[in-house]
């Protein structure tokens, strides 16, 4: 098939603009990123710098790929990361617009690559259980109800791609943060640091990202279909943390 691509090109430190590229001879079995690989090889042969975009595992699990395709984070296929999108979703003659994630907290590095390190800052603020190596007791000493383990796993399936932020009209990171918070808060192992974790991660999130106004676009764009329920649970824990943590400070 023959496609026409409108691609965002941006040099570091400069303003970006759309460039149009023709992409003839694309096979429907190709993945979307393989289509871009082909376009890039042709650009190199012409002597034009290839389009920078990021990807790694191309299996939908590492969370590196991050394209805004026709205004949708990760493109038109539901529950699918960009790397798992295939060209059979498109028709001959289609025009496709490709942009980087759009969010002030994800500055553009070059072309379609953005800096998502703000997500790591949230994780660093408390996204862990303090269990130094060697200190663990036998794993079966702490039974975890199957429902709790399953819910925690539903949250932990988040791949940290940032599509939720890109899709949100407010560039909020509530879905990402709630997935990380609730993965740990739902487990017995995560209780000791529950309130401290929630407070620290939510407040770090607010330093970088916009506010949630319950649009739900994040869930629609999420390649792992992380549930909005986790945002509700996180909000509940955050309110509680304000009481629980204050109580702890009062004991000093």
């Amino acid at each position: 098939m023959h496609l026409t691509l409108k691609v965002w090109r941006q040099e570091p430190g400069q303003n970006g603009m759309f460039q149009t590229y023709e992409a003839p001879g694309i096979s429907e079995d190709m993945s979307f990123l393989e289509m871009l690989d082909v376009v890039n090889e042709r650009l190199i042969e012409e002597g034009t710098a290839p389009i920078v975009f990021e990807s790694d595992c191309r299996e939908g699990i590492c969370g590196t790929c991050d394209l805004m395709i026709d205004g949708q984070a990760h493109g038109p296929e539901k529950a699918t990361a960009t790397c798992q999108l295939h060209m059979r979703k498109y028709n001959d003659g289609d025009h496709i617009t490709i942009e980087p994630w759009r969010a002030a907290s994800f500055p553009v590095i070059r072309d379609l690559a953005v800096d998502r390190s703000a997500l790591d800052a949230i994780q660093e603020a408390g996204g862990y259980i303090s269990a130094p190596t060697g200190s663990a007791s036998d794993a079966n000493l702490t039974p975890v109800p199957k429902d709790a383990a399953d819910s925690a796993m539903d949250a932990a399936a988040c791949i940290g791609c940032g599509a939720c932020v890109a899709a949100c009209p407010n560039s909020a990171a509530q879905l990402f943060t709630s997935a990380k918070v609730m993965h740990l808060n739902l487990l017995p192992q995560g209780q000791a640091e529950r309130w401290k974790r929630t407070e620290a991660m939510v407040e770090t999130m607010e330093e970088y990202f916009g506010s949630c106004t319950n649009h739900g676009e994040c869930h629609e764009a999420c390649p792992k279909e992380i549930s909005l329920d986790f945002i509700a649970l996180m909000n509940k824990d955050y309110v509680k943390s304000k009481i629980k943590n204050r109580k702890l400070s009062g004991q000093k």
């Binding site: 862990y128 259980i129 269990a131 190596t133 060697g134 200190s135 663990a136 007791s137 036998d138 794993a139 079966n140 702490t142 039974p143 975890v144 109800p145 199957k146 383990a149 399953d150 925690a152 796993m153 932990a156 993965h183 740990l184 487990l187 192992q189 995560g190």
Partner: peptide, 22 residues
């Protein structure tokens, strides 16, 4: 055997039986 203990303590959501054991 220590790896499983360590990972469970960190909150790795391993598959569980209904009784809560691994």
């Amino acid at each position: 055997v220590n790896i499983i203990d360590q990972a469970a303590a960190q909150g790795v959501p391993f598959a569980r039986e209904y009784g809560g054991l691994l």
